[in-house]
């Protein structure tokens, strides 16, 4: 029951997922649309429970057991709670039952997102520029013919993609574009076939119950 029922469900929904593409009959199309717009939407919405719940449980546990850096877990839990309250009761456009401004100072969900979430997320990824430049300096060496080829291509694409190159060497941006549209395309397409076949095989294994990793154990 614990294993067979999910495996049976994955087989049925798997076949059901493929059918509308293969059989364009309106009965199947209508059933497929209803399934997606109602069943998948609602189940998908509840899946948030898994993510948010896991985070809350992990940090509550950290606070309870006073593990290393447990104080920061309070920051997470409190910010999650405050943002949720503002969003749920203040409304998306700030017209909910909870006031989201004091005078000209607005603290609605959109303002919090643009003024806090965006700078945090964008900066977190921007610091990769520093690590990448340091790593490129340290490890990007022309040790062999293949490495030299990689290096040269990177240089052409790097320089060819900034406007200055068009002023200094007018043909360079076009050459960089040619690299992307011809040899790089050939390599990416060759690898793409392998990736696509691998993905299809995995999908088939999931539907047929051969791939069971998603069950999280067989008990």
């Amino acid at each position: 029951m614990k294993v067979r029922l999910p495996l049976l469900l994955v087989l049925i929904t798997g076949i059901f997922g493929a059918l509308p593409f293969l059989i364009p009959h309106h009965v199947i199309q209508t059933a497929d649309n209803e399934f997606r717009n109602s069943v998948l939407v609602i189940i998908g919405a509840f899946s948030l429970v898994l993510g948010v719940g896991s985070i809350i449980r992990h940090h509550m546990d950290k606070v309870r057991r006073k593990r290393e850096h447990w104080g920061y877990s309070w920051v997470l839990l409190i910010s999650l709670l405050i943002t949720s309250i503002i969003g749920l009761f203040g409304g998306i456009d700030g017209n909910g039952s909870l006031p989201t401004h004091i005078g000209n100072f607005h603290f609605d969900i959109q303002t919090i997102f643009i003024r806090m979430e965006v700078p945090l997320g964008a900066t977190m990824f921007s610091i990769l520029a520093f690590f990448m430049s340091s790593a490129a300096y340290r490890s990007f060496k022309a040790r062999s013919f293949e490495a030299t080829l990689l290096l040269l291509t990177a240089f052409i694409v790097m320089f060819g993609s900034v406007p200055l190159s068009a002023y200094l060497i007018p043909k360079l941006p076009h050459f960089a574009e040619w690299i992307l549209t011809v040899p790089s395309t050939a390599a990416k397409r060759g690898m793409g076939f392998g990736i696509a076949l691998g993905g299809l095989a995995t999908s088939l294994k999931i539907i047929l119950g051969i791939e069971r990793g998603w069950l999280g154990g067989t008990k």
């Binding site: 939407v41 948030l48 985070i55 997470l76 910010s79 999650l80 943002t83 998306i92 979430e117 977190m124």
Partner: peptide, 29 residues
Amino acid sequence: YRVCEHLFIGISNGYSITFVWHRVLMPTL
């Protein structure tokens, strides 16, 4: 840095809860 890092995760989850409730669960269910 750690405060900022934890704020980032907290806010993004709160934001997700808001939209899933108002724009998915309310109109669909």
